[in-house]
Amino acid sequence: MLNKFFRKKRIWLALIWFAALITASLFWIIFLPAAAERMDFSNILTAPSLEHILGTDLLGRDLLARVLCGAGISLGVCTAAVGISVWVGVCLGAFAGYYGGWRDRVVMGFVDIMLCFPTFFLILAVIAVMGPNILNIMLVIGFTSWMGTARLVRAEVLSLKEREFVVASRLLGANDFWIITKHLIPNALEPVFVSAVLGISSAILMETGLSFLGIGVQPPTPSWGNILSDGKSALGVAWWLTLFPGFMIFTTVLAANILGEGLRGE
């Protein structure tokens, strides 16, 4: 089955993009962390040149360095956020699916309520209240994106619940917790994986959106979003400040979507 997955050209491109991105940003973060911070006031807002391949920003910092460090930040935050949302979603979904009854209705009611809120509104409200730092961003995005996963897992558990291996396990004396964690959840993970990959793409859009608006990752820590907001102030003057970070966001989200879609097509 995985043959079909690897056949499409664009999936390879997406994978290569991620590999390159992760490698480059790790390299920069580990070996050249200062490059993103070094301000050079004689070189403010210079266009791309041999010395600064992507140009410099409002404070003379090299854009390439900032973009790559920002990559690490954004990817790290978003992966963590997705991790949280998957964890919450799997736990709640399995719980609801397995026990059914009023417990199921309470959890699903909670899902319905959460789905009524425009996600971005909720995230903004919580950040307003708790302050914008990296940890809060991770938590907030994580705690507002679990609903889809919960529904998926619940559906899988409902259908797996009555299968022979579960019944057999119960007859052999396994307790609920064991059945849920050792049998049901591993089998329900496949669609969760797909939704996790797609979740990364929406998490990136949300984190960079927050940073762009100024309530996400705070400068001087670079994030594609806050570099873009610098680009806004320099609109019409420094096209590179707008083009490059935005392009990174676009391509990364696109790559994540391609991978997610490819996995789903299985």
Binding site: S201, L205, T208, G209, F212, L213, G225, L228, G231, K232, L235, T242, L243, G246, I249, F250, V253, L254, N257, I258, E261
Partner: peptide
């Protein structure tokens, strides 16, 4: 697919 992936704030700026 592209339309789905484009960050709206970037598109606005462009």
């Amino acid at each position: 697919l592209a339309g789905f992936s484009v960050p709206t704030f970037w598109l606005s700026l462009l």
